[in-house]
């Protein structure tokens, strides 16, 4: 592996990854390389394994087989005596620090104000002082348009505002990779735009590798560098948005696209 040349390594690599729950194989021999700074949209029908891909990368689920790499370092595994063995907690924590995630249902800490939500991890994990963490969080909340809501609790915010706090909270850890799992699905239609705008600006202004599970085909088309279509635990087709949407090759893709585009 290219552990000694991290710059040459992909930001994320799924190598022969298999995931199953009991008899149900959710992901079957997944191979996927994602370049630094690349924006990847993950689409596909319900149950095709999209969320599972992100959750394994966030280490919320273990892989059954295969290895996930981050910048040339194994995430799910570690080296012992030159051999790859299952990673221990400490190793996982170290590599995981490069990854942040935004969830469909926000998962904000309801007992903390917006700014406290953002400050928690920088203080307890990175060892920032309160003042430093506050300043960092204030800047981020300002960036997502919530500079006037620092002291509001999640219960006092709209869905769109909550999701923007969640984005700021993840960014406060300065991750290199951001995962978004259907982050607008739980929102009222009129609030979707404000969240997508924040993500769009993020992509433009920061060096971030982004993996985004989405049902917003329009957004995937304009935002992503690459679209991956999952079907039954495999990548059935992938390509640039132009190729993927303009000239889909796979029959499943064609069916899926005509179904969702009709529904829109």
């Amino acid at each position: 592996m290219s552990a000694d040349h991290p710059s040459a390594a992909p930001m994320v690599r799924f190598e022969n990854v298999r995931k199953s729950y009991g008899h149900l194989t959710v992901l079957d021999d997944l191979n996927l390389d994602i370049a630094p700074n690349e924006k990847v949209a993950i689409i596909g029908p319900s149950g095709s394994g999209k969320t599972t891909v992100l959750r394994m990368l966030m280490t919320l689920e273990e892989v059954n087989d295969g290895v996930i790499w981050v910048e040339g370092d194994p995430l799910t595994h570690m080296y012992r005596d030159g051999k790859l063995v299952r990673a221990n907690k400490r190793h996982i924590r170290q590599v995981r620090s490069k990854i942040g995630m935004v969830f469909q249902h926000f998962n904000l800490f309801p007992h903390m104000s917006a700014v406290k939500n953002c400050m928690e991890a920088p203080i307890t994990v990175l060892g920032l002082s309160r003042d430093e963490a506050y300043e960092r969080s204030r800047v981020l909340l300002d960036m997502v348009g919530l500079g006037d809501k620092l002291d509001h609790y999640p219960g006092q915010l709209s869905g769109g505002q909550k999701q923007r706090v969640a984005i700021a909270r993840a960014l406060a850890m300065r991750p290199k990779i951001m995962l978004f799992d259907e982050v607008t699905s739980a929102l009222d239609p009129e609030l979707v735009g404000e969240v997508l705008n924040v993500i769009r600006e993020l992509g433009e202004a920061h060096d971030l590798t982004m993996l985004m599970v989405t049902h917003q085909m329009g957004f995937a088309k304009e935002f992503a560098d690459r679209v991956c279509f999952f079907y039954a635990g495999k990548i059935a087709e992938q390509g640039t948005p132009d190729a993927f949407f303009g000239n889909p090759q796979n029959e499943r893709t064609q069916q899926f696209l005509s179904a969702v585009l009709e529904a829109d």
Binding site: L108, A121, V125
Partner: peptide, 15 residues
């Protein structure tokens, strides 16, 4: 989701 958010933020078990 609270546990998962804590993991995603890399909080220690104690924290």
């Amino acid at each position: 989701g609270q546990w998962e958010a804590a993991t995603a933020l890399n909080l220690s078990t104690l924290t």
